[in-house]
Design a protein around this nucleic acid. Structure first.
Lengths: 243, 243
DNA sequence: GGGAAAAGGTCTAGCGCGAGTACGTTCTCA
DNA sequence: TGAGAACGTACTCGCGCTAGACCTTTTCCC
């Protein structure tokens, strides 16, 4: 069984995303997460395609699609450019695939965030933690507005990943947040739940500041369990992967 | 700074591996990890390309390359097939890129394994843990033979990932083991180090059996720190990513 | 006012990967 | 000795992507 299971992983489908798809997802995700805020200007096409290491044609395909979906607007002429739309379109409901595998998405996020908590406790610079403490304080005033709270929450978790000094952790944390945003955007979040979650943020930073990796990791696990319980009450149990 | 760092992630190069590259890496990794043992027969080409969801041409490209590198041998005719070589070629030294980013590879592995530890403590079925206990006992007799020990170690960590019931964790754990194998294959492993590591395996399984997620996670963190310290003593500090 | 500059928008030529398919070759087993 | 199961080879076709030249719009600044 163990053997069969391992081979299943080895011989699972090789599915390579196209450059077009990945580009669209990257930029679309950054907008959904608030990493790119409404009104922000993207780099010029000729510059951006260099950074992404794709041809301009491919980049334009992605940008055209994002214009059509209303995520960005393009302005011609000098001083023009591609801008994040001021009124971005509402988030789509989570895909059938994500709904089906929501527990695996949560598992992945758990792994990433536990790693972040442990590494942050070992490496975080105190000054960076001050910024996070400040953010947590601000978030206490956002518990009535889930949209604002959620954007700040993303900043908190990605900011925490940055304190590890590990580029890879930032990438993984961003991906994890993207998956969660799709899942939780459409469900109700009572004020008490958000207030409690933010109190956990505070305890988390405190544990990290004291360099107590074990406690930080435990607090993080508890923090994420909250989300998982909410989802478990609303979504059907995960099944085998759907292709 | 936080802003710049986030955008750096968003606008990082999009480099999609080709189907050929990923296929070769998949099978090559399975062989290096011992998931595919010497003498094992791979599925027939026409069957395998179906599982991998690639065309036979692409699969053959990968297999031809693996034949030339000596990882597999092909036999024609009825009863033939593609077999893992009995005497696989020695592992290549780690790539310059991996050496440069070894700490990030360790960080990623830490995250995955902490997630596995926590989830296993919540979900592992006791019978599966019995198998792991047995494996740990066998490993005590392998501390003199690093090759054998390492293959069993891979089985242990992947087997543990399987107890979480999360497909994704198995995939991530396999990838993490592959990266580590490249790093540690060429360095000395004194008997005492291996014996100590295996004692940690035993304590880990014990904590999981008691459903003590916090302790399991802490033991796992300590277990991995051992490897990291060994590497830190032998390898130069990681720098910024190299492209 | 009139360039020059900086942006997005359009078009075309061409390459390489990968899908799909047909046929050839070699070996073993019944 | 033939059937069958496997690898080996050869070909075409289409799509994604690259690369580059050129057009159009807008604004800044002399």
């Amino acid at each position: 069984m163990s053997r069969a299971s391992s081979l299943e992983v080895t011989f699972a489908p090789v599915r390579s995303q196209t450059a077009f798809e990945e580009t669209m997802e990257r930029i679309g995700t950054a907008i959904k997460l608030g990493v790119l805020a409404p009104g922000d200007r993207l780099p010029a096409e000729r510059e951006l395609c260099g950074k992404l290491e794709i041809s301009r044609s491919t980049l334009r395909q992605a940008l055209t699609a994002l214009v059509q979906s209303g995520h960005v607007v393009a302005a011609r002429g000098r001083g023009g450019g591609t801008f994040v739309a001021e009124r971005p379109p509402p988030l789509e409901p989570p895909s059938a695939e994500l709904l089906h595998n929501w527990r695996e998405a949560c598992d992945t996020r758990l792994a990433v965030e536990l790693g972040v908590a442990t590494l942050a406790a070992q490496r975080a610079q105190p000054e960076r933690l001050d910024d996070l403490v400040e953010l947590v304080a601000e978030m206490d005033d956002m518990v009535e507005d889930f949209g604002a709270y959620r954007r700040a929450d993303v900043r908190f978790h990605i900011g925490l990943a940055e304190t590890t000094g590990s580029h890879r952790m930032v990438v993984l944390a961003t991906e994890a947040q993207a998956a969660m945003t799709d899942l939780i955007a459409h469900i109700a979040h009572p004020v008490e739940v958000l207030a409690n979650a933010n109190a956990q943020h505070a305890r988390l930073v405190a544990a990290i500041r004291e360099r107590d990796a074990t406690r930080a990791t435990a607090v993080m696990a508890e923090h994420l369990r909250g989300t998982e319980h909410v989802l478990a009450g609303l979504l059907p149990e995960s099944g085998p992967p759907v292709y």
